[in-house]
Design a protein around this nucleic acid. Structure first.
Lengths: 139, 139
DNA sequence: ACAATGTGGTTTGTATACAAACAAAAAACG
DNA sequence: CGTTTTTTGTTTGTATACAAACCACATTGT
């Protein structure tokens, strides 16, 4: 009776999530050169919510403080975003979409939606919304 | 008529996959200290398939050559795995589970299965298998 | 006002991830 | 047999990801 459960890696939720995410990132990179999926997520939140502090932006995009710092640094370097120290709270770094950042976001939004579609392409419309609904509950 | 599709980051498949995966990795790390989820996946494949070349192991775990190299290096450093140059094919590096690697894998398999369960905890049994089936088709 | 606590941001160290370029060796091919 | 192609592995450079330690500043409670 030695706990002989045959561990099936291929059916483990973590392994599946990783593989599907890999496929998605690959489709994204091929479809939208210039920014990564993470960088695009940051641009999307800034377009949606307006100016945010760096850490707030991190929270809104599910990146921790160290990670969002790197993403913002690279977006600043590309001129897609502006980071300005706040005059009220001198710890805060306020991040805003630049004109070219907004332009790029608006120009690529449709393509980004197509990336999601291509990732979900093997599923029917009903299956897609089922999957999204299930994943939302695992957040 | 300016392409006004309101890009909903929270419902994009890529963002959802990333967030659920984050949650899963966090549960894994808290439940199984000592090895990461990736390292555990490599151990699982070696336990399942026996000796493999480093690149083969990478393919079996969906990691590219550069990534699997790092994972194997760290497993070797921890003594969980042995890497020996092949005498037949002098390019090949044959990777095998060490005794302590096998012991650790067998001792943690049950916990690893519980990690998957905890990740899926918000879903019913039927929903879980539905989700897994859907993700399998997106591989 | 002051001390305790919390928050914003940075830095360092470790671990994936992958593109790209490379060297060595094996396999395929005419 | 010799050339071409593939395969295996390494290295470098860039981009997440997160823990942990740290500093500066803000907020809270007394």
């Amino acid at each position: 009776m030695t706990g002989n459960s045959p561990y099936r890696l291929d059916e483990q939720i973590g392994y599946l999530l990783r593989r599907v995410n890999q496929r998605h990132l690959s489709i994204f990179a091929a479809s939208i050169p210039g920014v990564t999926a993470m960088q695009f997520a940051a641009l999307a939140r800034l377009a949606e919510l307006g100016a945010l502090s760096q850490n707030q932006l991190g929270r809104e995009t599910s990146m921790d403080a160290a990670t969002i710092k790197g993403v913002v640094d690279r977006l600043v370097r590309q001129g897609l975003v502006v980071a300005v120290p706040d005059s009220e709270d001198r710890r805060r770094l306020t991040v805003t979409l630049s004109d070219s950042g907004r332009t790029l976001f608006e120009a690529t939004t449709a393509t980004a939606l197509k990336v999601s579609e291509r990732t979900l392409a093997p599923l029917s419309a009903r299956e897609r919304s089922r999957l999204v609904a299930l994943l939302l509950r695992l957040t």
